[in-house]
Write a protein that binds this DNA or RNA. Structure first.
Lengths: 162, 162
DNA sequence: TATTGTTATACTCTATAACTATA
DNA sequence: TATAGTTATAGAGTATAACAATA
């Protein structure tokens, strides 16, 4: 079409390229989860690019907003990352002006995390954008199936019961 | 317990830390998919550590085995990565002795990918290990729910229909 | 001694962009 | 001109390991 020999383009990611045999992959829940996650991740990031918000940053903001005075160690535990990772994450959110490190009265080693004024205002808008994006991404499912899906995903997230 | 001040440990990743409010996150399919993917990924990698196989490497081996003479460019498209990424992936699988680059008769630029003898033998065992792991990971779902889940995940992987 | 936050460092994954040899 | 494979490079993301301040 146009004159662009450069650019790897990508497109959205086609879960089923025509003419390709997928064999056992199509029967694996693990593969299905991976495909769904890849697709949803990129749509999320695009939709939230305006705020430079990734799924992890959004999760962190919500958790901080609902759990007053959360420490960095606890945030790391909740998100499933190591403490040094939460420092990087928190540094980014602080630089964006969304959260602050607040001194903890009883413990001079720790900081409690809290949303800034701007963080509170923007999180409301960001949450609305996330809900809009979620609605679009799950538009092919009615409320009942959506609920079933959430239940089953929750079961998959539990460690194996061996 | 023991005398180890070092080690960040991690454990498996707890999707619901007691005492923590998750708010809107618990209602989002996107967050549920992410949690499920994190949990299943680490279990997969642990179960396949013996062969140094990741989900992506397994997918590549299956696709190559079922689609004779697949090129690196096509493999990249199927996996949703860029061509330079497929070179890295293919290099690794070649070094492991699982696949070969085979000259394509009509086109001296391209290579067709093919499993080696060892690749064929090991893929059979690896596939069995993956199926065992899959059964363990989805043990909390019966066949009917498992089928529903696969259908819904497939819908999520489609790009939004705006 | 143990814990909190931090830093330095490294490793993995994957992207961009340029290059080469063919087509 | 366009395409297949390749390479160099860089940017996320996240891990390990050590450290200072405090408990």
């Amino acid at each position: 079409m146009s004159t662009r020999a450069l650019k790897e383009a990508e497109g959205p990611f086609n879960p089923h390229v025509p003419g390709i045999e997928y064999g056992v992959l199509d029967t694996l829940v693990g593969y299905g989860v991976r495909r769904a996650q890849l697709a949803m991740y990129s749509v999320f990031v695009d939709a939230l690019a305006k705020w430079n918000i990734t799924p992890q940053r959004f999760s962190a903001l919500v958790i901080i907003s609902l759990n007053e005075g959360l420490t960095l160690t606890k945030l790391a535990e909740v998100l499933g990352i190591v403490r040094s990772g939460s420092v990087v994450l928190v540094d980014a959110l602080v630089e964006m002006g969304y959260i602050d490190r607040v001194e903890v009265p009883g413990d001079r080693r720790a900081y409690g995390l809290a949303l800034t004024r701007k963080g509170q205002k923007d999180l409301a808008k960001i949450t609305q954008a996330v809900l809009d994006q979620e609605a679009r991404a799950t538009a092919r499912l009615n409320a009942a199936r959506r609920k079933q899906l959430l239940e089953m995903l929750d079961l998959l997230a539990q460690p194996p019961q061996d």
